[in-house]
Simulated assay, not measured.
Amino acid sequence: MTDSNLVYSTDSGRIKQSDNKQAPRSVSKDGVVRISRETKGRKGKGVSIVSGLDLDAKALKSLCTELKKKCGCGGAVKDGTIEVQTDDREKLQSLLQAKNYTVKLAGG
């Protein structure tokens, strides 16, 4: 066999592999980056969610890594947003403003 990825279906014939699925992006309509606090589904632990960054997946991951190092905490990139495991939203705001982003604190 020369093509090990070849797949057939009796229903519709040859099934093609999907090409280049783009990762979801979190884009705000007004160009403002928002930092909100969320505790749902985390057993009361608060995380700060950074949304509205119009960056590709690689740039989001590198920005997330930088924010985690500066805050001394964990985090992840999920669905085009950055989740940082800290309640210090003011520190995140100052770090993003230093990178020339317009930042607002959203929520309570």
Rank of each mutant, 00 (worst) to 15 (best):
R14P: 01
R14G: 00
K16F: 11
Q17H: 09
S18R: 15
S18D: 13
S18I: 13
S18M: 15
S18F: 14
D19F: 08
D19Y: 09
D19Q: 13
N20M: 12
N20A: 14
K21A: 11
Q22R: 00
A23E: 01
A23P: 01
A23D: 04
A23W: 09
P24W: 05
P24K: 00
R25D: 10
S26Q: 05
S26K: 03
S26W: 02
S28T: 09
S28Q: 06
K29T: 03
D30E: 07
D30M: 03
G31I: 03
G31T: 04
V32H: 01
I35D: 09
S36Q: 11
S36C: 11
R37F: 06
R37A: 15
E38H: 07
E38W: 01
E38N: 14
T39K: 13
K40E: 09
K40F: 12
K40G: 06
G41W: 08
G41N: 03
R42T: 14
R42H: 09
K43R: 12
K43P: 00
G44Y: 02
K45Q: 13
K45C: 01
K45T: 10
G46T: 15
G46F: 09
G46R: 12
V47F: 06
V47W: 09
V47A: 15
S48F: 10
S48G: 12
S48P: 08
I49W: 07
I49R: 15
I49N: 03
I49S: 08
S51E: 08
S51T: 08
S51N: 04
G52A: 01
G52V: 04
G52P: 09
L53A: 06
L53R: 01
D54H: 13
D54S: 12
D54C: 06
D54K: 14
D54W: 04
D56K: 11
A57I: 08
K58H: 06
K58N: 05
A59V: 11
A59P: 02
A59I: 09
L60A: 03
K61A: 04
S62R: 11
S62V: 13
L63S: 02
T65F: 08
L67Q: 05
L67N: 02
L67D: 04
L67I: 10
K68H: 01
K68C: 13
K69F: 05
K70A: 15
K70D: 13
C71N: 15
C71H: 10
C71D: 10
G72M: 10
C73L: 10
C73T: 15
C73G: 06
C73K: 10
G74D: 08
G74W: 04
G75Y: 03
G75A: 01
A76M: 11
A76P: 00
A76T: 12
V77H: 06
V77E: 02
V77K: 01
V77P: 06
K78S: 10
D79L: 12
D79Y: 11
G80T: 03
G80M: 06
G80K: 03
G80W: 02
T81P: 00
T81Q: 06
I82F: 02
E83F: 10
E83N: 14
V84W: 00
V84K: 02
V84G: 06
V84E: 04
Q85D: 12
T86F: 07
D87Q: 15
D87A: 15
D88N: 15
D88H: 07
R89N: 13
E90F: 11
E90H: 11
E90M: 08
E90A: 13
L92T: 05
L92C: 06
L92N: 08
L92W: 07
Q93E: 13
S94M: 12
S94E: 13
